[in-house]
C-alpha cells in the first residue's frame, strides 16, 4: 500500500493545490479509503498541512477514512426512489448491519452508501452491488440479500 501511494503521486505535479482532489480521488479509488499515511504524503506532495488535507477531504462525501467493506452496497435515495420507498430499504439495511451509511462493519464484509438518482427512477428503489443493479427493492429482501452476499464473500 505504501508503494501504491508513491506510484499514484508520480502521476501528478508536486506543489499544485489544484491537483489535490484528483490525487486524493485516485488514492481513494485504488485503496478504498484515505489512510493517515496517504494524507501525510498527499500533504507533503502538495505542500499543505495535513490539517488542510483532512479538512478538504472530509468536506466531500467521496472520501472515506476507514477501509470500505468487501461488498459496498449503493442505495439510491433520489426523489423517485424515495417516493417508491427507499427510506424503508435504507432503514432495513441499517438495522440488519447495525451501522450507518459510510461506515464499515466490524467484520469488514459490508459497507453501504446512499446516493442520489442513479437513473432507474421507474424501477426504484434501485440498489447496486458491485456494479450489479437490483430494481424495485423491498425491505424484506434485505436480510436474504445480505446473507447471500456474505456467503459468497466467505466462500470466495
Amino acid at each position: 500500500m505504501d508503494k501504491d501511494i508513491d506510484v499514484i503521486l508520480k502521476k501528478f505535479k508536486p506543489g499544485r493545490r489544484e491537483e489535490l482532489l484528483p490525487l486524493l480521488q485516485e488514492i481513494q479509488e485504488t485503496n478504498g479509503h484515505l489512510s493517515e499515511e496517504a494524507i501525510v504524503k498527499a500533504g507533503r506532495f502538495v505542500g499543505l498541512s495535513t490539517t488542510k488535507i483532512y479538512g478538504v477531504a472530509t468536506f466531500y462525501d467521496q472520501f472515506r477514512f476507514i477501509p470500505s467493506g468487501k461488498v459496498c452496497l449503493k442505495i439510491c435515495n433520489g426523489t423517485s426512489c424515495f417516493m417508491s420507498g427507499s427510506g424503508a430499504v435504507i432503514n432495513r439495511i441499517r438495522e440488519e448491519t447495525g451501522f450507518e451509511a459510510g461506515q464499515t462493519g466490524r467484520d469488514g464484509v459490508f459497507s453501504y452508501e446512499i446516493t442520489t438518482c442513479m437513473g432507474g427512477c421507474h424501477h426504484g428503489p434501485v440498489l447496486s452491488v458491485n456494479g450489479e443493479y437490483l430494481t424495485s427493492v423491498k425491505p424484506e429482501q434485505i436480510p436474504d440479500l445480505l446473507k447471500k452476499l456474505k456467503f459468497i464473500i466467505e466462500n470466495d
Partner: peptide, 21 residues
C-alpha cells in the same frame, strides 16, 4: 502559519479541529 486548525466535515456535522480530528 502553522495551520493547525481547519473546518472538518460539512453541513450539520461541521466543526473546527486539528489534523485527523
Amino acid at each position: 502559519t502553522t495551520t493547525s486548525l481547519d473546518f472538518i466535515n460539512k453541513g450539520s456535522k461541521i466543526h473546527v479541529g486539528p489534523s485527523m480530528d
